[in-house]
């Protein structure tokens, strides 16, 4: 909790946890110490469903550069996907 930098938002989707898929309702994005990645600070994506208890979560720890690349990749996939869907109509 050394930076305390965390942003949260409600989302809709599903995640695959240790045992099975489950609906995810929120994502917490922090820039703080990782638990596993071999870095001092990482961008941590913590997808959760609080109503299912603390173990209902899917977590990814990324280097800052990887997080930036992911943002761009998501935007590009969204752009191409929405275009493809629109052309198919």
């Amino acid at each position: 909790m050394c930076t305390m930098v965390v942003e949260s938002t409600k989302i809709t989707g599903s995640g695959k946890g240790t045992n099975s898929w489950f609906p995810i309702q929120e994502v917490n994005v922090s820039y703080d110490h990782p638990f596993h990645a071999p870095m001092e600070y990482t961008v941590n994506l913590d997808f959760t469903n609080e109503s299912m208890g603390p173990s209902a979560r899917v977590v990814v720890e990324l280097s800052a550069r990887s997080a930036e690349e992911l943002i761009g990749t998501i935007r590009e996939a969204l752009r191409r996907g929405e275009k493809a869907i629109a052309q198919g109509k």
Partner: peptide
């Protein structure tokens, strides 16, 4: 006070709550 689970799960839950 935020419940029980693995230490990592509880730490991530607490982090999302602002500590």
């Amino acid at each position: 006070r935020s419940g029980h689970g693995t230490p990592e799960d509880m730490a991530m839950k607490i982090r999302s709550e602002g500590g």
